[in-house]
């Protein structure tokens, strides 16, 4: 018992005050890209050529954050002339099209459905479904339950049964082998229900696009309400998206 108390004192309270106080991530973190629309097409082309995810549209000078793994190679290749990745972790979007961006995303709080805020703003229960995810999205979602983030202080919980859930949070590129189990889980959630696509895999197939063993786009199976980009999304990206989408505005 003495050791429990000693450790408790040593650990102290580690819970962050986010969102009341902002958190600054280390400058090497790669979040929302800042894109220079004046950049010459030659440089954009070089960035597009090196992009492993084919996420860059040259003529439009856009990056598709639904495909991007935030590897940062385009920033190095163009020496920042086309894209620089900022420390802004607010990447969630309500529409797939918004993720194809010139560096700005619409305010998520203004774009979410008011009925969702009314229904789930004070209590949101989610069932997580890993559908061929590499376990980094899953791991960084799990992290939200650790003392630093302490997700339950916002009235948001991940629950064990779809019957107890208000929606599903899907990770992974949806292997053919998980398709049925995913649909069964979705069906088991009582309506009205929310679908969240987390990580570039569930949005576009991510690193596995083109494989014939995956579906690759959650929205082609069931209608997606909220997109959270990243490979994996930083826990703060997920937290930011959940708070904006369900609680604010």
């Amino acid at each position: 018992m003495l050791k429990v108390i000693q450790n408790r004192i040593e650990q102290g309270c580690k819970t962050s005050n986010y969102p009341l106080e902002p958190i600054n991530l280390y400058h090497r973190y790669r979040g929302l890209p800042v894109i220079d629309s004046e950049c010459s097409l030659d440089i954009v082309q070089r960035c597009a050529d090196i992009c492993p995810q084919d996420a860059i549209q040259v003529e439009a000078k856009t990056i598709d954050l639904g495909k991007c793994t935030f590897c940062g190679q385009c920033e190095v290749e163009g020496e920042g002339a086309f894209a620089r990745f900022s420390e802004d972790f607010g990447l969630g979007a309500a529409n797939r099209g918004d993720l194809i961006t010139q560096g700005t995303l619409p305010d998520l709080a203004a774009h979410s459905k008011q009925e969702f805020k009314k229904l789930f703003g004070r209590s949101l229960q989610l069932r997580q479904v890993s559908a061929a995810g590499c376990n980094s999205c899953e791991a960084d979602t799990n992290v939200l339950n650790t003392p630093f983030f302490d997700l339950s202080r916002f009235g948001i919980d991940f629950v064990a049964s779809p019957r107890h859930a208000d929606g599903i949070h899907v990770t992974g590129p949806i292997s053919k082998n998980m398709r049925q189990a995913l649909l069964d889980t979705y069906d088991a959630v009582p309506s009205p229900k929310i679908v969240i696509a987390s990580g570039c895999c569930s949005i576009s197939g991510g690193p596995f696009y083109g494989s014939d063993e995956i579906i690759g786009d959650l929205n082609s199976l069931i209608p997606v309400d909220l997109y959270i980009p990243g490979c994996p999304p930083h826990p703060l990206t997920t937290l930011h998206a959940l708070l904006k989408f369900f609680k604010q505005g």
Partner: peptide, 25 residues
């Protein structure tokens, strides 16, 4: 088997730029 993404089958057809991204996943 539920997580099968066909990685071994797709890797030989991939350009070098995609290989590290796939192997990290």
């Amino acid at each position: 088997g539920y997580q099968h993404r066909g990685i071994e089958k797709m890797l030989p057809t991939m350009p070098m730029k995609r290989m590290p991204i796939i192997c990290e996943a």
